[in-house]
Design a protein around this nucleic acid. Sequence first.
DNA 1: CGAATGAGGGTTTTT
DNA 2: CCCTCATTCG
Length: 789
Amino acid sequence: MFIALILTFTIMSISTTTQFFSHLNPNQRFAVEHFCGPLLVVAGAGSGKTSTLTYRIANLILQHRVNPENILAVTFTNKAAREMKERVQNLFSEQLALLDYGEKLNFLPEYEKTKIKSRVWHNYIKEMWIGTFHSLFARVLRFDIEKYQDEQGRKWNRNFSIFDESDSQTLVKEIVSKKLNLDDKKFDSRSVRYAISNAKNQGFSPGELELECNDYKGRVIAQVYSHYQDKLAENNALDFDDLILLPARLFQQNEQVLGYWHQKFHHVLVDEYQDTNRTQYQLIQQLVTNGERKKSNRNWNQRSVFVVGDADQSVYSFRMADFTILLEFQRDFGDGLADEYTSTMVKLEENYRSSENILQAANGLIENNTQRIDKILKATKGSGESICCHTADDEVAEAQFVINQIRTLENQNPELDWVSFAILYRTNAQSRPFEDILVRLGIPYTVVGSLKFYDRKEIKDVLAYLRFIVNPSDMVSLLRIINTPRRGIGKTTINNLVNAAHELKKPLWEVLVDEISVNNLAGRASKSIKNFVQMVINWRREIDILSVSKLVKQILESSGYIDSLKDHGTDEAENRLQNVRELFNAVLQFEEENEEVSLENFLASTALNSNLDDLKEGDSAISLMTLHASKGLEFPIVFVIGLEQGLFPNYRSMNDPMALEEERRLCYVGITRAQDRLYLSHAKERRLYGYREPALRSQFLNELPEDLLVTQFCKSQKDTKNTFLPKSSDISNYASMPCWKVGNKVLHRTFGMGEITHVFGGGDKISLAVKFDYLGQKIVNPLQLQQVN
DNA sequence: CGAATGAGGGTTTTT
DNA sequence: CCCTCATTCG
């Protein structure tokens, strides 16, 4: 096996040098071929950044024979991590196919293809540590957290829970209002929680935060922070920020632990480096230097740190990302020479994504910023279409215009599909009018990110069961499930038990296990508690016996959770049941896709993957998302909507020059998502909290080069309006005609003849499933149908 | 003990 | 406008 690997390396390295990166430009090539030492890659939007990263990883392994397990690659999102793995896997499979069969991978039979891919997965991909800061260092903590103790002596063990934002919020709230009896007007839990998070992201412990603060408010926040850590430790739980802060602290206090990980990761790569915060930077620095401060003492033999980023796309300072970290890379790691002479920085400025008009708009906008690395995107494509700027009466008209445009374009251009379109906005709430129309028209769409699957009650309930089974100290989860579904364990009973646990300074669970205590404290409910306790004990026994999915199934059934939903009988309960089933599917999928399947690992993946949308990938649908969520993506046609003063730029940023620059960068990100066509729109009036408010054109629109914009589209829109999109009053007239019946033959304006198979909804929200003669079954809008006899 | 009802408050962006 | 929380009633 080992010999085979070596052989593979040797032969592959011969076959790779020639065409492996023949299509890369000189600067990309420089980056890809970089082996040891530091390198900063300043990668403009659409400059082939992801390719560069994946090719470099491939090059390290194939060319320089780096062992995959010595590679650490940090991405910004889980999705990016998955994509990177997939791309490296494809690259390797491609090479291996050439080598073993002298054929392109795609020409091989399916069976051989799969064989190669799984071989690549086993030998290379699986061994690399590719993921987000949070998931990678959660993994580190599973190994080493028991060696850590904070300055107050708080400790955790390897079964720790990861608390989500609402868990954290609840904890902080409890401390503020119950424990410390603070005025919750002055110390509202949201902003206190935010302050604590910021402190953690800057590397401060409660004690250090207190020293930092001179004012009363700061000291109180430090105090809340301290109590908050007590609570977390009591629950054997960590929040998101701890997943970064704890390892950094551990590395600081324990040379051996740091030494181990330093020894393991010879090559450290960080994507989206402009979005790292101080604590994350500290981690990278520790791993790379092994704590050696002096630059001249650092040993780069067989080692590198390779970071990729673009200060112009730094849009996460609200969560303490600090792009000066990127600006200071040359000083901290590099040779610090001027741009012409340096060998530790390279710029990728050639843009392969967008048409020239779009790039010029982007460049023109970003030049209004002061804080940046001088960099300009150079076009490699033709000038393309003009950018369309549209003024709508209000947010509904805006949505109508956009969707109207999409339908027109989709109709006129056979090469376009629904996936070609993206609608980008500043705030999640802006998706609503778009969704309303899209639902009515039966156009498929996905809202990325806003649907927080794991935030739903039923999902949190089920996860609480799992969390508590793994981690008996997790009282937050225990309290969530002890009487869900109803077991007759009421508030008073629970209070008694909690108080007793508190008095005895024992975990709640230990009190529950003790029958005598329960008999005395719980009275009538004691039988239910004993049953509950027995149930949990049984599940814990099964952890090592059953597979994760079997265990989850067992829990869902024997807890009575599923039954109680079924008994409920309402639509809402049915919906919840559906979500629980979907969660169960996620478990099955997790089992298929992962090597180390354990309940802990599944829970970590759910805590760190905030949504499930990657599960439902594959259907052709228009994408709706925030500008933040769009980072790293690209679409043929992009609509950036709601360009109004106060909304975008957001009113909270308007009086702060730095914050305003960040808003501008966000706009820059939006513009540079577009490949072929870009639409910008704003409304003259917008609903906010239910009130209509007049709105002004965004200043960003004025900052764009005027000659690139075309506004005439607003006129031609009137022509198309009637043909494509009836006013809402028309819609209700049409749709309320009670003429659609299952079995009716219909003619669709684009899909042709078909037969109705289902009728959904009622009133003005009717949609129909139609089985078309040529295209199979689709859900369509009645407006596009004609009845045929 | 649990469901129903009303007031009040809140939207920037997310791992 | 929508959701959460708290209080009240059954």
